[in-house]
Design a protein around this nucleic acid. Structure first.
Length: 422
RNA sequence: GCGGGUGUAGCUCAGUCGGUUAGAGCGCCAGGUUGUGGCCCUGGAGGCCGAGAGUUCAAUUCUCUUCACUCGCCCCA
């Protein structure tokens, strides 16, 4: 065991695993391209205030999960605990809605939260997220949800449930708050301490309580959907009609509440039954007020985040093997210094014409080099010994058919190109 | 932050009711005669038995602490 190990809640993605990551990331990018979402890359850290103010001061993320520190210049800095505020900050800072009032953006990056690690939950994880800035129309909601749904499908994940709810807008919230408070009041003292706290600060989130007693007491509590204003109701109904038209199945969950304070109207989660307690693979919703709260003119927006680790975990649990193609290399086996020199040159020649080429670097015997070639999945082996060097040829062995023939060095590239080796 | 489980070779795991050189399979390395892979055979390397402390003549095995992973709660991606 080495002296150091990866910090708690972080993980090394080893070479055996990176192809899967690359495949998934590539697929997601492909889908984004199809949907016209363009990539944005924002800093790994931001001013702390961006999150305390916009993620929400009462959220768990802000109150107990942020990696916050003071830098050498005395600034309070926070490793981003979520992707939305940074993306919106950048959108506004560079006025990305100037050319087109609707900005469609996506990001892939590391997210940091100080939490207790668990399967599918890390202190540093990778998130793919989309933000659609500048549209209040339900078709935008459908666009974003459709993108997430398509992305999951493109990876072969069909066993997911889309949970949908609407929280209403700021106009509806006071009425709803009052309603749920009124409902809860008679037995407020029987609720857990978190609920009591939420009663004051954010009554909506009482619905989210997992304590059995609270769940029971709150079973018949009114949901925010029941208090939607006409506009919000129409918005929600229209979205549902769009999803129906798209053939995207959803389950209405009037109790769905998300842990970020900024959501308005539509919220949604894609859940899989394969991740244990961490069943949300993708979550998002509308945040129509955030941009105004950042000091810009009101700009309705929405987006989602998708956890790459959870995606990979789900794929694994489902037994989905990704179509990862590997390019078999041509292996160059050499014996003796002269052949080695010729081999080094040959290696480079092959790569220069775009052929993957490998060789031995520790002076193995020919037999061992052949074994190595086999292990690397080489399609062909070029054998170079004193005989070949003297004659200016190389021996080309086809690893599948075991056929061997000698060809002039000058014709090697051509011969390989015309063979099954490339 | 709270509760349960686990921690032995690169990997998957045996094992020790406390006792001398800690095992298997896979992987790795090397051989099985002259310059050739996948199968087979033989040999080899590789472990402070997660870390620290305690009990003991003796600890990988018992106790405590700590760290990490894991499951549940919480929260979320």
């Amino acid at each position: 065991m080495a002296k150091f190990s990866a910090p708690r809640g972080t993980q090394d993605v080893l070479p055996d695993a990176t192809p899967r990551w690359q495949y998934v990331e590539g697929k997601l990018r492909e889908i984004c391209k199809l949907f016209g979402f363009r990539e944005i890359r924002t800093p790994t850290f931001e001013e702390t205030e961006l999150f305390t103010r916009h993620t929400g001061e009462t959220t768990d993320i802000v109150t107990k999960e942020m990696y916050t520190f003071t830098d050498r210049g005395g600034r309070s800095i926070t490793l981003r605990p979520e992707g939305t505020p940074p993306t919106i900050r950048a959108t506004l800072e560079h006025n990305l809605t100037a050319e087109n009032p609707v900005a469609k953006l996506y990001y892939m990056g590391r997210i940091f939260r100080y939490e207790r690690p668990q399967a599918g939950r890390y202190r540093e994880h990778n998130q793919f997220g989309c933000e659609m800035v500048g549209s209040a129309d339900p078709s935008a909601d459908a666009e974003v949800i459709s993108l997430a749904w398509t992305a999951l499908r493109s990876l072969g994940i069909e066993d997911v449930e889309l949970k949908l709810n609407s929280l209403g807008g700021p106009e509806d919230r006071p009425a709803y708050r009052e309603a749920i408070r009124k409902f809860v009041e008679p037995f407020l003292s029987d609720l857990c301490s978190t609920c009591k706290e939420r009663y004051d600060k954010n009554p909506l989130r009482m619905l989210d309580c997992k304590v059995p007693e609270c769940k029971k007491l709150l079973a018949d509590a009114p949901g925010p959907v029941e208090y939607l204003c006409d506009d919000c109701r129409t918005h929600f109904e229209t979205l549902k009609a769009y999803l129906d038209a798209l053939g995207i199945k959803y389950v209405l969950d009037p109790r769905l509440v998300r842990g970020l304070d900024y959501y308005t109207r539509t919220i949604f989660e894609f859940q899989t039954p394969h991740l244990g307690a961490q069943n949300t693979v993708c979550g998002g919703g509308r945040y129509d007020n955030m941009i105004e709260e950042m000091g810009a003119s009101p700009t309705p927006s929405l987006g989602f985040g998708m956890g790459i680790e959870r995606l990979l975990l789900t794929l694994e649990k489902l037994g989905i093997t990704l179509p990862i193609e590997k390019k078999p290399p041509v292996f160059i086996a050499t014996m003796g210094p002269a052949a080695k020199a010729a081999g080094v040159k040959l290696l480079s020649d092959l790569r220069n014409v775009g052929m993957a080429a490998e060789t031995d670097f520790i002076g193995k015997s020919l037999k061992s080099q052949m074994k190595l070639a086999d292990k690397l999945g080489a399609s062909c082996v070029l054998i170079l010994g004193d005989d070949e060097v003297a004659q200016g040829v190389v021996t080309l062995r086809d690893m599948l058919s075991k056929e061997q023939r000698q060809i002039p060095v000058s014709d090697v590239v051509m011969a390989l190109k015309n063979s099954s080796c490339d």
